[in-house]
Nucleic acid binder design. Structure first.
Length: 640
RNA sequence: GCUGGGGUAGCUCAGUAGGUAGAGCACAUCCUUGGUAAGGAUGAGGUCGGCAGUUCGAUCCUGCUCCCCAGCUCCA
């Protein structure tokens, strides 16, 4: 029999046809790398190591420490979990069990709910399976036979999956006596699983549709080493430590109240301070960049919402109408119709475009109770909204300006990493293909010219226009929805929003919606988590806490406070009858940037003792120097 | 909205086989005047989420409801 050629790392090797991928490892891969190999790729297709090479091909090996390898390992672990569940809870049906971002899950249909103690029992059972080193045996069988097989086992969900696949053959994997419909690939045997942990129990709809049965989902994760697992668990704890709902309470930033209703935020004085600073910075920056600030009402007659299309397309997110003197009014879920009303108050010339109006507009949207989440998902929120009305020729420049503003603001708040998405038209959309082509390519050009790499989200646009979404990466590497810039073909048509061009004729205006912070509530929540509550000096609600050593220094502390206040700083005195250490501890826990200690020594020499929340005691300095230091820190918006 | 888990003092939580509850921190008063992450004593503080039902009696059992948490689905 003639040999086939295998290409690995551009090196050609001749092998007998039918040689398994695993057998090639020894001849092709240096010894120190072999141990980590868990799967392979032939001509780009991921396969098991037990797969034979049948013809001339290019081979690559997948190492367990690559992202792809880790996914395979986790997916394989999910099979072990399913096997354990089936053994411990006979009669439980299995649905699907993929690997996900940081682990894996498997969905089960079980009569009674899982309880937390079940997880331990399942883990113990999994350990047995892992110890037994069961191989993952792949088999290709006809769909017919597969249906028979899974029907016999009572695995209705698998049967449904096979029927929907509608292909002649499917692959199944056997691990011990557990059989699963699976595309693969898998690790060679369960002994390849090193460390894993089951994390949570949750509900999930079969195939993600709320029309379907609710299944029980078990989440878990797997890693190569215990250190990596511990690191992951530590990150989860760290995320919990930074949770804005906890910090919001601890730092007295905001609250929510059962008596007021779900999803409605109350900004406390500390949160209010931060919000005002953000808002003032935002207004200044907008005026600098040629925006005008407007204010609009919170309610409007239902007719307006019929014209805008919200009544037809957005009603499930809007609150029921209220009747006022026989007229129905609706609370606004968006600001755009109001800004259009302002634009439409007179005939506009191309000479006055672009017309940019910005508003911190508070809107209310009905959100299903289950989706509410602290400040990140609420029912009433203030958008940092703006609408730009321009000519087609101006569109690109306006997009660039928006992107520029977005990045400027985000960087100022300390976000350095982003993911940019360009969402293009979906199946149903309004407007013509030419318009969409133009808008989509303009958005793409704006990003490209700015040297901003982006991901194309095909079909991700709303029905009324394409958009750019910017996601922020926070201090823990989590992504948050940040700025969004959306093009709108719809509203100008509906409101007949136009301008008179140089040709003396009326043209439909081009309209851009954009929000940079998104909503103040969500952005604030995100900021809290990003800084873990330790706001930089320019944002900190209390910038310095005066700590008199004894109550005899209170008058001196008041004198210093006066000077600091005069210089424009937010300073409080802790005049309580407590020891210095105690007051420092409290100020530290309140994450106040500076503590100013004044005792007899300082009073006598007319200076202050300064302590920074992160650097600790930074020694004595005179008041002017401290003011200069803080000024510099505030003006540069430094993140310390 | 759905599945599961919850709601006890301002906060974090314990507790009651059904007989109206407790700790630590915070708060108040007093003692202490103390130098870079917790000094001491005393005290006040609760419709045990809300409404109904069962019961001689409900924080505890039942039903409904509101709110919160983990997900699913959906979004700024």
């Amino acid at each position: 029999m003639s040999q086939v050629s295998v290409l690995y790392n551009d090196q050609e090797t001749k092998v007998d046809p039918g040689t398994k991928a695993a057998a090639l490892i020894k001849t092709l891969v240096p010894e120190e790398e072999r141990k980590k190999i868990i799967a392979a790729r032939i001509d780009g297709r991921a396969i098991d190591l037990s797969t034979p090479v049948t013809g001339d091909s290019k081979i690559e090996f997948i190492s367990s420490d690559s992202p792809e390898g880790l996914n395979i390992l986790r997916h394989s672990t999910s099979h072990v979990m399913a096997a354990a569940v089936r053994k411990l809870f006979p009669g439980t049906k299995v649905a699907i069990g993929p690997s996900i971002e940081s682990g894996f899950y498997y969905d089960f249909d079980k009569k009674t709910p899982f309880i937390p103690e079940d997880l331990q029992a399942i883990e113990a059972e999994m350990k047995k399976i892992i110890k037994a080193g069961e191989p993952y045996v792949r088999e290709e069988i006809s769909s017919e036979k597969a249906v028979e097989l899974f029907e016999e086992m009572g695995e209705d969900y698998k049967v449904e999956l096979i029927r929907d696949l509608n292909v002649p053959t499917v692959s199944i994997y056997r691990t011990g006596d557990f059989v699963d419909l699976c595309y693969g690939p898998h690790i060679p045997s369960t002994s390849y699983i090193k460390v894993f942990k089951l994390l949570t129990i949750a509900g999930a709809y079969w195939r993600g549709s709320e029309e379907n049965a609710m299944l029980q989902r078990l989440y878990g994760t797997a890693f190569l080493t215990k250190e990596e697992l511990d690191d992951h668990l530590f990150k989860l704890e760290e995320a919990a430590r930074r949770d804005h709902r906890k910090l919001g309470k601890d730092l007295d930033l905001y609250s929510m109240h059962e008596v007021a209703g779900a999803g409605l935020a109350f900004w406390h004085p500390n949160g209010g301070r931060i919000r005002r600073i953000i808002e003032e910075f935002w207004y200044d920056e907008h005026y600098k960049r040629g925006y005008e600030v407007v204010y609009s009402p919170h309610i409007a007659r239902v007719n307006l919402w019929k014209t805008s299309g919200h009544w037809d397309f957005y009603r499930e997110n809007m609150y029921s109408p209220m009747e006022v003197e026989g007229q129905e009014y609706l609370v606004k879920p968006m600001n755009c119709p109001f800004h259009i009303i302002i634009y439409n108050t007179k005939k506009r010339s191309y000479r006055e475009l672009p017309y940019r109006v910005a508003e911190m507009g508070t809107v209310y949207r009905y959100e299903r109770s289950g989706v509410l989440h602290g400040l990140l998902r609420v029912r009433g929120f203030t958008q940092d909204d703006a609408h730009i009305f321009c000519t087609p020729e101006q569109l690109k420049k306006e997009m660039l300006n928006c992107v520029d503003l977005a990045f400027f603001l985000m960087r100022t708040f300390g976000f350095e990493e982003y993911e940019v998405n360009l969402a293009t038209r979906s199946e149903s959309y309004i407007g013509t293909d030419e318009e969409w082509d133009m808008a989509e390519s303009t958005l793409a050009e704006a990003l490209t010219e700015h040297g901003i790499p982006f991901i194309k989200d095909e079909g991700g646009a709303t029905f009324y226009g394409p958009k750019i979404d910017i996601k922020l990466k926070d201090a823990l590497g989590r992504l948050w929805q940040g700025p969004t810039i959306q093009f709108d073909f719809n509203l100008p048509r509906r409101f007949d929003t136009n301008y008179v061009g140089p040709d003396g004729k009326e043209h439909l205006v081009y309209m851009v919606h954009r929000a940079v912070l998104g909503s103040l509530e969500r952005f604030f929540g995100c900021l809290i988590e990003h800084y873990a509550g330790a706001f930089p000096l320019w944002l900190a609600p209390v910038q310095a806490k005066m700590i008199p050593v004894t109550d005899r220094q209170i008058p001196y502390a008041e004198k210093v406070q006066e000077e600091l206040k005069k210089a424009g700083f937010r300073v409080e005195i802790d005049g309580r009858n407590e020891k210095v250490g105690f007051k420092i501890r409290e100020a530290q826990l309140a994450k106040i940037p500076y503590m100013v200690i004044v005792g007899p020594v300082e009073e006598e020499s007319g200076n202050i003792g300064v302590r920074h929340r992160k650097q600790g005691d930074i020694g004595k300095m005179n008041i002017e120097d401290f003011i200069a230091r803080m000024k510099e820190e505030v003006e540069s918006k430094a993140i310390l």
